[in-house]
Amino acid sequence: MNKKIFISLLLVLAALIGYLLYLWLSDKVGAGQEISWGAENRRKIVLVSPGGIYAPITDNFKAGLAQRGWQENGNAVFLDLTYAGRGESWSNTLAGLAAQKPDLIFAVTAPAVLAVQDLLPELPVIFAAVGDPVAAGLIKDYSHSSARAAGCADWTDNLAAKRLEIAHEAFPSLRRVVVIWDAADKNSRVVASRLSGVAAALDLEFFSVPAAGQTEYLLAAAGLSAADYDLVFLLPDELTILHWPQLAQKAQEAGLPVIGYVSGQAEKYASLTYGAAAADLGRQCAPLAEKILLGEPISESPSTIPEKLYLTINLLAVKSANLTVSPAVRLRADKIFE
């Protein structure tokens, strides 16, 4: 046989063997992934979050579980899902998720929790960053969770009045407060109504602007003007959770301070926030999740409230609105961004 032909045949044979080896390894890796996700000694945990300022919640939740021995890709497997609102893609995602039979879902914010429960009612859910889980129908009370959910409230709804009082103390010259909120959120309607009474007691003008959908919300944000308002107040409904950066940026462009409900908002556009820290909520939820993973019925797991509340001030945002923070409020601040 010609030497060149022989060498060519060897090269072809080597390439064929390499290709077959590649297919065999690919099949093994794929099978291994399926086995690891469904193995008896691994727990499947789905993380559902809007991301952004809420990312520290899921990060610290995973860290808290790791400290308790639940190691990622060891005895636990995590699947991260970003909640960007309900829709066909969200329904399809959860429909596919149901077939995987996860052991636990960790959902961040009330809209994400409710969206999960509507489509996957049979799965246990640990929630975080829910303003009022009792009003939202997630639990009966804090000592008696439901058969479907338990978790860590952040008290944003209950603290709304306190945030407005602090904002008034911090910026006493500001009189006109505007809240743009999701008209589909019944709880925001209640909180906005409650804030109207608080504003009246503080001798403030209160403007409640319900928005029916994303387009109306962003149009209302684009229409913010210092000629009409003095201060923008945020409520944690679905439209605000998903679009608050656009709203806050428009407010900043109009020279209006923004009052937020979670400390992470003060790292960007908000002038002042009062509420729980995202990282704390994540760590606080880890022990609850561990109980469920070890077989305790979720109905026997009490829900919790924030262990600490933080007053955070962003002096750059305050300065951009041509304001100063009253000395009394500044002295009480837990964290100041300069």
Rank of each mutant, 00 (worst) to 15 (best):
L202W: 05
F206Y: 15
V198I: 13
D141M: 07
Q246I: 13
Q249M: 11
A221G: 11
G213Q: 09
D182R: 04
V178M: 05
W244N: 11
R194S: 15
L164S: 06
V134H: 04
L242C: 08
V190H: 07
F233D: 07
N158L: 14
L202Y: 08
A167E: 05
A149R: 02
E165H: 04
A220E: 12
D203Y: 05
G131H: 10
A211V: 02
F127Y: 14
V177D: 05
D185C: 11
A184F: 10
V179Q: 04
A135V: 06
D141E: 14
A150S: 15
A199E: 09
P133V: 11
S146W: 06
L219C: 00
W181D: 04
I126D: 05
A136N: 12
L195S: 10
V191I: 15
D230F: 02
L202P: 03
E165T: 14
P210E: 09
D132Y: 09
A222W: 01
S196V: 00
G223L: 04
L202Q: 14
H168T: 15
L202M: 09
F206L: 08
A211T: 03
E165L: 09
N187G: 13
L219Y: 07
G197R: 10
I166R: 02
L231Q: 09
D185Y: 12
E169R: 12
L174Q: 10
Q214I: 12
P133R: 09
L202F: 08
E216G: 10
A147S: 14
A184V: 04
